[in-house]
Design a protein around this nucleic acid. Structure first.
Lengths: 212, 212
DNA sequence: TAGATTGTTAATCGATTAACAATC
DNA sequence: TAGATTGTTAATCGATTAACAATC
């Protein structure tokens, strides 16, 4: 899906632009952005043109302008509020993840069925799973991270979807399918490792062949 | 990159096949696999044909045969040994991740610069970063997970690559680029959430329009 | 002006799908 | 045999790139 890839690239452009701005830079060329994001300059301009992001012929792009246009498109007005379901190791790690603060992601609460994990006074608080629907509605949240063990993941996801969650980032070690009312993005860590390993071995195989 | 996608699909097919085998099933059709993996049957057969995986006209595929052929291609002979660099919240969570055991991924050790994190008696053990090269060579490891904070990630990655690591799965909240000797797969959690959120909002927008 | 960069169009490339002959 | 499924080819689809006129 290219729409997805286009948005990914725009998000990465935004991250780069924010860093450039902090460094005090004022303008940037498609060439610079492309190098920073790791794609071709033509593709950066193409992505921009899809959303009507414009610069100045000969003069590149004003970083401020580009950022405010990107923020309008990508929605950076309010922070992205997220719930975490499953407060085991991974869930807990994500509760206080450093990478979120800078990116405008805010973890509002965690949920678990294990009474020992509950702690409404922590920041973010951890509530019993029974409170999920209530908190979700009270805070108007539509995106959640799923981080339960494999055996409960599908069941829990169903409950979240029933409650009205529209997007799930799934860290459970089993891929889930979305549905008409809910998008699912699976993060399959074991699969990523095995995929990486395949190409590592492939590279070694071709190296050996060359070496001969 | 399709090669990457093809391998991902084959890995997912393998995972499905292993479950079917546990259930006592003997044969499977491209149709079944496709539904389980969430792609078209034609694509499953296409992926198979790229690697010469064959079944029986009219008779589908024998699960045992397919599994052993897939294992040959994807390399399931020995477990995939992995090191983790950075034993903060995320790194520690991955140290004992349940999803790895079943998939043949084995975390051999973790590393950190913080003396308080060191524990050579834990399973897996956590060593000082100074021991990285030694352990990597002793265990013949080529793939590692990077889970340090943003500010040290690039520097640490460089050290890992110098040491001879060939593949890095990067959980640090800053995308890294690979190089000729090392592949990098970035897991950018904030970006995944923002991407998901974009399409959630997009869906809501079109729903509203329909509602009118 | 001369030179450089954008914005966009057309060309290319590659992945997926459709379709069907082969065949069990 | 009749029917169903594979393996593969050709068609389609879509994303990326190349190229260049517009223009600052």
């Amino acid at each position: 899906m290219s729409a997805k890839d286009t948005i990914s690239r725009l998000l990465r452009c935004r991250a780069v632009l924010e860093k450039l701005k902090l460094l005090g830079m004022v303008k940037v060329y498609s060439d610079n952005l492309a190098a920073a994001v790791g794609v071709s300059a033509a593709l950066v301009r193409k992505d921009f043109s899809i959303f009507g992001l414009t610069g100045h012929r000969r003069g590149g792009y004003r970083i401020d302008d580009l950022l405010s246009q990107l923020n309008r498109i990508l929605g950076r007005d309010q922070p992205l509020k997220v719930l975490i379901v499953g407060c085991g190791k991974i869930g807990t790690a994500l509760m206080n993840y450093r990478g979120f603060g800078t990116q405008g992601v805010r973890i509002i609460a965690g949920f678990d069925v294990d009474p020992e994990k509950i702690n409404p006074n922590a920041v973010p608080p951890v509530y019993p799973m029974d409170d999920f629907e209530r908190v979700m509605n009270a805070e108007q949240i539509r995106v959640a991270i799923l981080a339960t063990p494999e055996n409960t993941a599908a069941h829990v996801a169903e409950r979240m979807i029933m409650a009205g969650i529209r997007g799930i980032l799934n860290f459970a070690p089993i891929p889930l399918k979305g549905g008409p009312s809910c998008l699912v993005q699976n993060i399959d860590i074991a699969l990523e490792l095995e995929n990486l390993y395949y190409f590592v071995r492939l590279g070694e195989a071709t190296e050996e062949r060359r070496g001969k």
